[in-house]
Design a protein around this nucleic acid. Structure first.
Length: 645
RNA sequence: GCUGACGUAGCUCAAUUUGGAAGAGCGGCUGAUUUGUAAUCAGCAGGUUGCGGGUUCAAGUCCCGCCGUCAGCUCCA
């Protein structure tokens, strides 16, 4: 090959020889003029590049298009939309400082340093100005500059200068211009602003520069964009759907729980119906735990600080712990527990253990209290009083993998029963850690092979583990595709040391057991909050706080209706009688709004025939008149089988 | 914790812009109605406008502090 020529492999596998420095667009034109017009960017091996970017190395190249459904295409679009947003803001607020403006999972944002936070009206003006910029169809021009010139160009932009400092010597510094707006940016971008199609400015909120609470707060504007208007509309519909499912609203409408100012933020009152859901979840899990060799323990809610000093919580976790309770005449203060592990350690340590006893699996459903920062509290999802389905497993090092495997199996069974799909994150050793590399190797290998034995796919969060051990997080997906934190499985090298836990091995020597923290639901607060949103409040029979609403047509039918209710209760089902002095229609409507799975109407005909007129929630079908016994068996079977309909 | 917005009856919201008698619907209670598949009718009760200060002849409305909620940041089960 002659000097100044490059070999590129096209998507169809054919090879072309091109001039060194040819742009992707020129290449596209050589192949097909139509292609050049339609392409929005190109991908050289794994690097997305602008169409105008000179190609200076051989590789595989393919073009990105608006309609290829490729994540990378959306990435380029949203990145460009973020720039259009910044262009608009800069034209309306010429002195606005600019921070970062990346594409994110569902759209993009851009951070600005402005005197006054943006108001909703500002956002409308910005969106309108964006439309002008898109209509003007300004080219995105890329240019590579020397460090000195870049410093010159961004001399008024301290955030960009800071970013510039971090670009290593020898790395390319690129800037992009569209119209009057110039940004330090790696790119790539669409060919021009006119290609930014369907976008929406969503909301604004404060965000620390670089996520650091000690640094200035910038104003972040969130937006999203799509190539297809129908996709944008679908996305906005999904946001609306998420609002409709909000567990805080449903929790009020369905009378599941409340949070009260006089009691304190982040403290959940489980009303009878919400408590029933928790009760069902508990019973389900507890039965399963017994089957799987767990033992239940109960530990105090408060204890002397001695315990938390020993566990290290006082030193490392105190900012999250509620303040000390002073006891008159006692040297030691008391604390309310933020976790259950110290208590379980204490039980393990209370007597000698033989290797024959292991694994020991202690389970406790217990409420813990953590003084979470006020701004992080959110309904049932982030609270200060949290009820974990906690367990600690003590085992020999060679048992770790099997124990992890068993936990994954349990999580799979539980989540499967709820119809929840999930994925795993494996978090490995962080830079700051305790324990030798050999111990970490062994621990991480155990986690990995347990996951792989179950043939589960997982993502690795390198360096994401706690300083005391690696972990697996289970993230479940709800009905509209959102991820929720569920189970967490956490190896711990520290606590067994701190509590000097040991067992006597077959060699008659003392050994240190391995210890695993794990929760399956995580916390009842968060899990139930998630379930409310997943089911949009329409719980399947086995979870529904009230499974059947029994409605007599009129006063004279109270007794037969009450008999139906009692028969349901006798069958272990949850039934309510609605004999209010309201019309039948009214009570049916109310039952539907309360999302009761079944309404059973008892009229004269039913009372005489020993039947009920059954109305299934949400079903289009007409009511079904069936014998009471048959109806009860149907509901009981649905309850027993934990059917998800 | 930080930034901003918000806080009116049990709930959802008017009245706040421009200071001048706190309102509606739903829900609740009482009565009438006895109902056949998504709202029967009437009457009544219900508010120290989150809490505490301040400005003013007058504050739901303007100012300050606190509490709480929301959107995020950070953090996390």
């Amino acid at each position: 090959m002659s000097a100044g020529k490059l070999k590129l492999v096209l998507q169809d596998g054919s090879e072309v020889e091109v001039e060194h420095g040819i742009s992707a667009r020129e290449l596209a034109e050589q192949v097909d003029g139509d292609l050049a017009a339609k392409a929005i960017a190109a991908k050289l091996d794994d690097e997305i590049i602008d169409l105008t970017r000179p190609i200076t190395r051989p590789g595989k190249i393919r073009f990105l298009f608006e309609d290829d459904g490729d994540e990378d295409s959306l990435y380029v679009l949203r990145h460009s939309a973020a720039h259009v947003l910044a262009t608009a803001v800069r034209s309306l607020w010429p002195n606005a400082g600019i921070g970062f403006g990346p594409p994110i999972a569902e759209g993009f944002y851009y951070d600005f340093d402005v005197e006054q936070p943006f108001t909703p009206e500002d956002l409308e003006r910005i969106e309108a100005r964006m439309a002008e910029i898109v209509a003007a169809d300004q080219d995105f021009e890329r240019r590579e500059v020397e460090r000195g010139e870049a410093q010159q160009l961004f001399s008024d932009d301290p955030y960009k200068l800071e970013r510039l400092e971090e670009i290593e010597e020898g790395d390319v510094i690129s800037v992009y211009r569209d119209g009057d707006f110039l940004d330090l940016c790696r790119g790539p971008h669409l060919p021009s602003t006119g290609r930014v199609g369907n976008y929406k400015v969503l909301h604004a909120a404060g965000a620390y520069w670089r996520g650091d609470e000690r640094r200035p707060m910038l104003q972040r504007i969130y937006g999203t964009s799509f190539f297809e208007n129908s996709h944008l509309e679908e996305h906005l519909r999904r946001l609306e759907e998420a609002r409709r499912r909000d567990h805080r609203l449903l929790g009020k409408e369905l009378d599941l729980f409340s949070i009260q100012e006089d009691v304190g933020p982040g403290l959940i009152h489980w009303h009878p119906k919400g408590a029933m859901i928790q009760f069902v979840l508990r019973r389900f899990l507890e039965d399963e735990l017994l089957r799987r060799g767990y033992e239940f323990v109960y530990t105090p809610h408060i204890s002397r600080e001695t315990l938390f000093r020993r566990s290290g919580h006082l030193q490392g976790y105190s900012e999250v712990m509620f303040p000390a309770m002073e006891m008159e005449g006692e040297k030691e203060n008391y604390r309310v527990k933020p976790m259950n592990c110290p208590g379980h350690m204490a039980i393990y340590a209370s007597r000698q253990r033989s290797y024959r006893d292991l694994p020991v699996r202690y389970a406790e459903i217990a409420s813990d209290y953590r003084n979470e920062k006020s701004g992080t509290l959110h309904g049932m999802l982030r609270v200060r009083g949290l009820t974990m389905d906690d367990a600690h497993i003590f085992c020999r090092p060679d048992q770790v993998e099997d124990e992890i495997y068993a936990m994954l199996d349990l999580a799979d069974y539980i989540y499967g029963t709820f119809g929840l799909r999930y994925r795993l994150d494996l978090s490995t050793r962080p830079a700051k850690r305790i324990g030798s590399d050999e111990v970490w190797d062994e621990a991480e290998d155990a986690l990995r092979s347990a996951v792989e034995r179950r043939e589960l796919t997982y993502a690795v969060d390198v360096g994401g583990g706690a300083f005391y051990g690696p972990k697996i997080d289970v993230k479940f997906l709800d009905a509209i595709g959102r991820e929720w934190q569920g189970s967490t499985i956490q190896l711990d090298f520290v606590l067994p040391e701190k509590f000097d836990l040991n067992y006597v091995g077959a060699d008659n020597q003392k050994h240190r057991p391995a210890m695993i923290h794990r929760a399956i639901y995580g916390t009842f607060e968060r899990f139930v909050g998630g379930l409310i949103e997943h089911f949009a409040g329409a719980f399947p029979v086995w979870l529904a706080p009230v499974q059947v609403g029994v409605i007599p047509v009129s006063d004279e039918l109270d007794e037969p209706a009450r008999a139906v209710q009692q028969a349901l209760l006798d069958a272990g089902l949850r039934a309510e009688l609605d004999n209010r002095s309201e019309t039948l229609s009214y009570r049916i409507r109310d039952g539907e709004l309360q999302k009761l799975p079944y309404l059973a109407v008892v009229g004269k005909r039913e009372a005489d025939g020993g039947t009920v007129a059954v109305r299934r929630r949400g079903a289009d079908q007409k009511q079904l008149v069936i014998p009471v016994a048959q109806f009860i068996e149907q509901v009981a079977e649905e309850d027993r089988s934990r059917a998800l309909i």
